[in-house]
Amino acid sequence: MAAGPTGVAVARSPYALRRAVVALAACAVLWQLGARLDDWTGVGAPGVGALPSPVEVAMAAGRVVVEPGYWISSALSFVRVMGGFLIALAAAVPLGLLFATNRTFRAIAFPVFEVIRPIPPLAWVPAAIIFWPTQEAAITFITFLGAFFTITINVLSGALSIDPRFVEAARSLGASRMTVFRRIVLPATAPSIVVASSIAIGLSWEVVVAAEIISGSSAMGSNSGGLGHFIWASYLGGSYDDIIVGMISIGIAGYLCSAAVRKAGALLTPWINAR
């Protein structure tokens, strides 16, 4: 087992896959037991008793995944998440580095940044709908916010924690300020960028659903609202199995996206795991 760029131990054990499958299966079994307790004993498990059982959900999933509408919803949410995330990445990395390297800029802009940062992305939804011309832009803006602040803060603290000896060694070796920035500050911050990105893309998935539910409930057709709208429409239509299918879909999508970001990050920072 080796420490990954997130500091979380990355499973290298040959048993890792087997363990993950067993754990997921165990969850499903517990859930099934909880959902059926009422039928068997007459006493429902609190909370879980109201849920559809995993068997029902699996059957619903089998039905849903052959509908194009489900895939259109997933694709819509994915595009919104990726759009917001990539714009956030492109904006937050330079901003974080600028905060870290330019004291004057930091003194001027950081307080503003810090006041805006605690505002939850969901609180922005009404303002975003009013401000942006299309609903699509509004939702992408919310996913952008979900990722932007996290990446900026992590890049800033990553760049500030660079060992000053690296910079001094580079200067002693005759490097210009530009070379120090390109070949010392940037790569030394890269691990922070990777960690921040893998967290941030998860945050974008967290907020996209709520943004879709809040904004999409007004005008959109049932297939145009993304996974958030899929869940909300399922709720309104009383198909509770589909709600769970939607929720699990988001979980899987978020997991796959974070894993993809970590993988890409590992390729960009090959020195981290080369030990």
Binding site: D163, R165, F166, E168, A169, A170, S172, L173, G174, A175, S176, T179, R183, I184, P187, A188, A190, T269, W271
Partner: peptide
């Protein structure tokens, strides 16, 4: 040229890139 107290090699560069650093700069 200063050689620091504890190693200040650039972790993100290979041995070759570290050695070539000053000439490239």
């Amino acid at each position: 040229l200063m050689v620091f107290q504890e190693s200040a090699l650039f972790d993100w560069m290979t041995v070759y890139e570290n050695v070539a650093f000053a000439l490239r700069a």
